[in-house]
Computed example of a mutant assay.
Amino acid sequence: MLPLKLTNRCFAGTTAAFFMVVNLAKLISFSMLGLFTRTTLLTSLVLTPVAVLGIWAGVRLNRCLNVTLFYKCSHVILLVIGTRLIYTSLKIIL
């Protein structure tokens, strides 16, 4: 999506919507596997304020960054994550 040069808000919103759909699809299989226990639900409840704080910080940061800086940060993050994935894959193979 980076080559589309969307606005900060449009890029973040599209990414958030995509991951929401993916995570909702995982709910069915996770519940069928019995992964929702009392412990996992309580842990999720305890961590909910942290998630809300992260969303708030992300929205504020998204509003503050200009488009050029936003895309530079996005490319750097993508490079770091891609490098880590390649390193991990090579570590497993070798």
Results as ranks from 00 to 15, higher is better:
Phe36Trp: 11
Ser29Ile: 14
Cys73Ser: 14
Leu27Ala: 14
Tyr87His: 14
Leu69Gln: 14
Pro3Phe: 01
Ile86Arg: 01
Leu85Gln: 13
Leu85Arg: 15
Leu6Asp: 01
Arg38Asp: 04
Leu6Ala: 09
Val21Thr: 10
Leu47Ser: 08
Lys91Trp: 02
Ser44Trp: 05
Val21Lys: 04
Cys10Asp: 13
Thr39Arg: 06
Ile77Leu: 14
Leu53Gln: 06
Leu24Asp: 04
Asn66Pro: 00
Gly82Gln: 06
Lys5Asn: 15
Asn66His: 13
Asn8Trp: 01
Ala51Trp: 04
Leu33Ala: 14
Cys10Gly: 02
Leu78Ser: 15
Thr15Pro: 00
Val52Trp: 09
Asn23Phe: 10
Phe36Asn: 03
Ala12Thr: 00
Leu94His: 13
Leu45Ser: 06
Leu90Tyr: 08
Pro49Ser: 10
Ala51Met: 10
Leu42Cys: 14
Gly82Lys: 05
Met32Thr: 11
Thr48Pro: 00
Phe36Arg: 01
Leu45Cys: 07
Thr15Glu: 06
Thr68Ala: 14
Phe19Gln: 07
Val67Thr: 15
Ile81Tyr: 13
Leu27Trp: 10
Leu65Lys: 01
Leu4Ile: 10
Tyr71Ser: 01
Leu33Glu: 09
Thr43Ile: 13
Val22His: 02
Asn62Tyr: 01
Arg38Phe: 10
Lys5Ser: 11
Cys73His: 13
Met32Pro: 00
Leu6Phe: 08
Gly34Leu: 03
Thr15Trp: 06
Leu35Asp: 03
Asn66Lys: 11
Ala25Leu: 15
Asn62Glu: 05
Thr39Val: 12
Leu47Gly: 02
Thr88Lys: 15
Thr15Gly: 03
Ala51Cys: 10
Phe70Arg: 01
Leu41Asp: 03
Phe70Ala: 02
Ile28Cys: 05
Asn66Gln: 10
Ile28His: 07
Ile92Thr: 10
Leu47Pro: 00
Arg84Asp: 04
Arg9Tyr: 08
Phe36Gln: 03
Thr15Gln: 06
Tyr87Met: 13
Val67Met: 06
Gly13Ala: 05
Gly54Gln: 09
Leu94Ser: 12
Ala51His: 08
Val50Asp: 00
Lys26Asp: 03
Val50Thr: 10
Met32His: 09
Leu69Met: 13
Thr37Phe: 02
Cys64Ile: 07
Ala25Ile: 10
Thr43Glu: 04
Val52Pro: 00
Leu42Asp: 07
Met1Ser: 12
Asn23Cys: 11
Leu53Cys: 07
Thr68Val: 12
